[in-house]
Design a binder for these strands. Sequence first.
DNA 1: ATCCACCCTGGAGTGCACTCCAGAGTCAAG
DNA 2: CTTGACTCTGGAGTGCACTCCAGGGTGGAT
Lengths: 162, 162
Amino acid sequence: MDMAGLLIGDVAERTGLTAPTIRYYESIGLLKAAPRSATGYRRYADTTVEELRFIKKAQSLGFSLEEIGEILKLSRAGDTPCSHVLDLSRRHLQAVQERIQQLARFRDQLAAELAKWDGKKEPTCRGLCQIISSAEEREADAPSLDLHARDLRAGSRRKARR
Amino acid sequence: MDMAGLLIGDVAERTGLTAPTIRYYESIGLLKAAPRSATGYRRYADTTVEELRFIKKAQSLGFSLEEIGEILKLSRAGDTPCSHVLDLSRRHLQAVQERIQQLARFRDQLAAELAKWDGKKEPTCRGLCQIISSAEEREADAPSLDLHARDLRAGSRRKARR
DNA sequence: ATCCACCCTGGAGTGCACTCCAGAGTCAAG
DNA sequence: CTTGACTCTGGAGTGCACTCCAGGGTGGAT
């Protein structure tokens, strides 16, 4: 062997990602390029596994890869106070908060309807449609908060230019 | 005018969608083809506006267009009990529930960290990273629940075949 | 009659986050 | 020394949900 370090497959296994995904992350600059062995194989340090786990978590919390890249970049730069990340976080928190509330309301209604169905009292598809229809609207107004995470999408963020 | 009914632009305005989006919905069979005027213009009934609003809401609650299509199809078929939608709803409820819990935990931690920053006590980017890193893992296990709504994505749903 | 804002179509393009492919090289085990 | 599982690259393809475009028709107001 030459120059110890994890192979991409090992890293993949440890993180639950695929090798192509890891290469993809490198290609978009999310992960910095790994040092190569004499024959061109990527050799990873254990810290990369940590970094990838971080990425996975941030992603599952609704951050886009681009946002994660920014956070990572700033975080690598050191322990400096960082108004940008602060700002990003605040807006993200706001979006998360709103999303939780909308989902919770929906959950309650849906659960209630399902309970009715379980009791065999008039189970109909229209019931579900009614619930969905009665979910509160929340677009058009308060357009200031742009979603930062399509995965938390609530209400469309299109603005219909015209 | 010939044969009253809303023009696509009117419908767009009333729903906050764009005309192309409405045509797109028709093209994928989500919306049934509107009757045409003698000159080929789509003429919509008011009920279409309702249907589109329903679609928007269902979408904001995390249903994919495909799922919405199924629901709509069954709902149009009448007030019959419908185990499929029931099933869809149950799994969706489950996913929503989990997602809410994860987001809520994240919200609390993020809020706490932001509060610290507001108090000007050592505001650092690393703090945020720590929070994200400490967000609980939730993948690999419990793979039974496939997400039904990429927008509620929590943890990746790739299974790494190999 | 002339505007001009609307409508139509088919098809191509977008953004995100991958995922797959072909063709070629590498490496440890049998 | 062969086998088989890995690695590399560049580029194309995927899925969702749009979004844009070119090229042409329509219809109410001036």
